[in-house]
């Protein structure tokens, strides 16, 4: 203000420029990331929300229709069944993939590596168990279709026919069970590395101390080793819930939602409407609803697992 009467002289100008440069520098460094995020995340989300209020379809001429798409979701008679199937799909997936991961890791890392000191064997089994996760989804699901396929295409049925037994049509009778089995297996194998490293974090001395204190290997497993898995289990549970909530590719590849919509989950229903029938407007409305459900579920999970309490404050030791 002091200089206002005299006008802005040169040194003040350069001072201001330096200050501006200093303040702008962090934003300049963030710019590439911010621009990319804006183009690939923010704009699509905005577009999705916008399209959810239109009747956008393969003609690509959106017309504003208000809340019609949202009304349609709840008016759809099978939506209850779809949500129920989604719940089963997510629930079974979470429970069995987490339990499966724990089981595999307890056997391979704890029993083989630590208790029986057979490290090569443990490693071998861990690698074998990684294969489902390392296989591309399309290949993995193709193998499942090949193995469980109907009479003349399926490996098992070919074998049954060879033995003069009645072939079983797995996909018509138990398609949901088959879908769950395949996805659980894959999902269980996916976090073996994470779980295994958590188990081997249990210090040797602590396990030895428990041995001296008279605990059996099983007791050590439950009382000493499993607590080290608390964080991986939380992470895996959250991840599987949100992941299988939005998953459609396995369903698309294995059962295509059928038969009679019995394996159609909410995410697959979106895929069908948006990309198969090209109802982009309706698909967007469904997606907005899915995001809302995911966020609610995620927040509930964060509370249930008390994630904030698991983050331990740093501590200085003297």
């Amino acid at each position: 203000m002091k200089h206002s009467s005299k006008g802005i002289d040169k040194s003040v100008m350069s001072d201001r420029r330096a200050l501006l440069r200093k303040q702008a520098f962090p934003y300049a460094m963030m710019a590439p990331f911010l621009i990319l995020t804006f183009i690939f995340v923010v704009i699509p989300i905005g577009m999705m929300i916008y399209y959810s209020f239109t009747d956008m379809d393969f003609m690509m001429k959106p017309k504003f229709v208000g809340l019609a798409n949202y009304k349609r979701i709840f008016a759809y008679p099978a939506i209850g069944k779809i949500l129920q199937q989604t719940l089963i799909y997510v629930g079974v997936n979470v429970v069995f993939s987490v339990l499966g991961s724990i089981f595999i890791v307890i056997i391979t890392t704890y029993y083989l590596d630590i208790v029986y000191q057979r490290k090569n064997l443990g490693l071998l089994f861990r690698i074998i168990w990684l294969i489902p996760d390392l296989t591309p989804t399309i290949v993995f699901m193709f193998i499942w279709r090949f193995v469980f396929g109907p009479s003349e295409y399926g490996l098992i049925n070919k074998f049954l026919i060879f033995l003069h037994l009645e072939p079983i049509d797995f996909f018509t009778r138990n398609s949901m069970a088959l879908l769950l089995l395949s996805t659980c297996l894959r999902s269980a194998s996916g976090s073996i590395i994470l779980f295994s490293s958590a188990v081997s974090q249990a210090p040797e001395h602590v396990i030895q101390a428990a041995k001296v204190d008279g605990a059996s290997p099983l007791k050590i497993c439950f009382k000493i080793v499993l607590p080290y898995l608390k964080w991986p289990i939380t992470q895996k549970t959250l991840w599987t819930i949100l992941g299988s909530f939005c998953a459609y590719e396995s369903i698309k590849l294995l059962t295509e939602g059928g038969p009679m919509g019995s394996t159609t989950t909410y995410a697959y229903y979106i895929y069908e409407n948006a990309f198969k029938y090209q109802n982009y407007g309706y698909g967007s409305a469904l997606s907005v609803f899915l995001v809302a459900m995911s966020i609610t579920l995620g927040l509930i999970m964060l509370r249930v697992f008390q994630v904030d309490k698991q983050m331990r404050k740093p501590r200085m030791d003297i």
């Binding site: 210090p203 041995k211 001296v212 008279g214 605990a215 000493i224 608390k230």
Partner: peptide
């Protein structure tokens, strides 16, 4: 077995059970 030897042991790292 260690548990039947009537011994008590203190480890260098103390080896306390962190979750208890």
């Amino acid at each position: 077995m260690p548990k039947d030897r009537k011994i008590g042991m203190v480890f260098q790292s103390y080896a306390l059970y962190p979750n208890m």
